[in-house]
Amino acid sequence: MSQAAKTNYILNLYPTTKLLFTLFIALSVFIVPTYWYAYAMLPVCLIIAIAAGQGKEFITLVRNGLLILLVFIFLMQAFFYPGAQILWQAGILKITQEGILYGLNMTSRILAIGSAFILFFRITSVKDFVYSLEKLGLPPKGAYVVLATLQIIPEMKKQTSVIMDAQKTRGVETEGTMMVRAKAFLPTISPLILSSLASTEERAITLESRAFSAPVKKTHLYEIYKTKHDTVVRIGMLVALLILIAGRILL
């Protein structure tokens, strides 16, 4: 995230505040019994994403990650959930009232929790999130592992295509029947694995020369702080949660 984006007050919230919001949505869809509420969480998340300037990415991820799955799940429940009230029947296939209801309930909750989760990572950089976890007690080595992984993945993907091209020049076929394609897998992945494993030794020496595993308190070059916005948002969520629970008990 650029420095300009940092002036946005949603992006500026402390990572754990945003995580609590995700947990708040996840909990509340189990407190409120109607599926309308859970479905309404998608537009809520969308509005927050747009306000944070992440609307487009949010929609793409929800569409690619959740949409097809939800349609599948809904059809599965509609057709196969055991029920007595049959709405439509053809041969062994039947749609029941109970199935549709169960399908709506299940998909609404997956959609709500899924989109809250996607929203969290759209408005929180992993760097900030890991920093806040470190403040909560995650060992610095754990933080290193997560951040290093995020760096290594694109690097290795690049290396994969280099190796694949090299093997193609050598005559390894990557097109054709399934057996031919399957045979290309090993010559691609084994040089990749062996070379990247060997590089861990050099990385170990480099890190050790900077006292990576020295048993001292580590300092940070990069820090983030909680603001009064965080307190306001947290109290707001607590009040909303109490209202929802009270409503569930009284109604």
Binding site: T149, I152, I153, M156, L192, I193, S196, T200
Partner: peptide
């Protein structure tokens, strides 16, 4: 340390 440094590499191998 060697094991810790292997984790990112192996996670990347899973994805690749």
């Amino acid at each position: 340390l060697m094991a810790i440094l292997l984790i990112p590499v192996c996670v990347a191998i899973n994805m690749v």
